[in-house]
Simulated assay, not measured.
Amino acid sequence: MIDISKVNQRYGGTQILWDLDLAIKPGSCTCIMGRNGVGKTTLLKCLMGLLPIESGEILLEGEALHTKPAQFRAPAGIGYVPQGRDIFPTLTVEENLRIGLPIRKDKAKQIPEKIFELFPVLKEMLHRRGGDLSGGQQQQLAIGRALVIEPKVLILDEPNEGIQPNIVQQIGDVILKLNQEEGLTVILVEQKLGFARRVGKEFRLMEKGRVVASDQMANLSEDLIKQYLAV
């Protein structure tokens, strides 16, 4: 579904990604893991068109993404929840969710009821400003906003950062439901090993701007954790 080949990226004179290869299969839930500073968020930003790549290619279902501007991603079927959420704090929950409606292929005028089934708190707070929500509620809003477009792929960058445990549990439940019951392809950057093991089907370990290990999540060994994840 997504094929990233020989991608190089640099900030000024510092190279962040080095001939990076990554393949994401349809219907998978892939956790991209690694210590801080190995290039995980940079990889996602390159995939989303928020950072240019120096060389290589990024394909979605065989179609080049790396040659297209960032605004092409949502119509192409990619929902993105960035680190820090990036909701619109002065807009209401309803207004935040409605932003994705024009991108839907069915041109629906109403927020899908499914969003409120997944995150009931959003319906309760529909008319509150996004900036007045708690961190956990804002994360639910950010994920809900990404789901409004009915994506083929959902990309989440550390969705549990700074979130209370009960919301972490709920987010995990939602990811499992979307992936296992509905077949949504999920790409997840995650630092919490327990959460990654709970929701992920596969892992990709990064070190110094490269993917250095790939396998089924069940095969994430203690040796790999010690070598690439332990602080």
Rank of each mutant, 00 (worst) to 15 (best):
D19S: 14
Y11F: 15
K107L: 03
L97V: 07
T14M: 12
A76P: 06
V153L: 08
F195L: 07
R204D: 06
V168Q: 07
Q180S: 14
F195Y: 10
K226Q: 15
N8W: 14
L147K: 00
G200P: 07
L147W: 00
E61Q: 14
N96Q: 09
T67C: 12
L22T: 10
I99N: 06
G84Y: 12
I187W: 01
V81P: 01
K6G: 13
P52N: 14
L44S: 04
E94K: 09
P52Y: 12
P75H: 06
I171G: 00
I24K: 04
P120Y: 08
D21Y: 03
L91K: 02
Q138F: 08
F116L: 09
K152D: 13
L65F: 12
I32V: 14
I225P: 03
L224Y: 06
N219H: 15
P112Q: 10
T30A: 05
P89F: 12
T92Y: 04
K177F: 08
L147D: 04
D223H: 06
M33C: 08
L60D: 04
E222I: 02
T67W: 13
R73I: 12
T30W: 01
D157C: 04
G27K: 03
Q169N: 15
R98W: 08
G77I: 03
P151R: 00
D223R: 04
V212D: 06
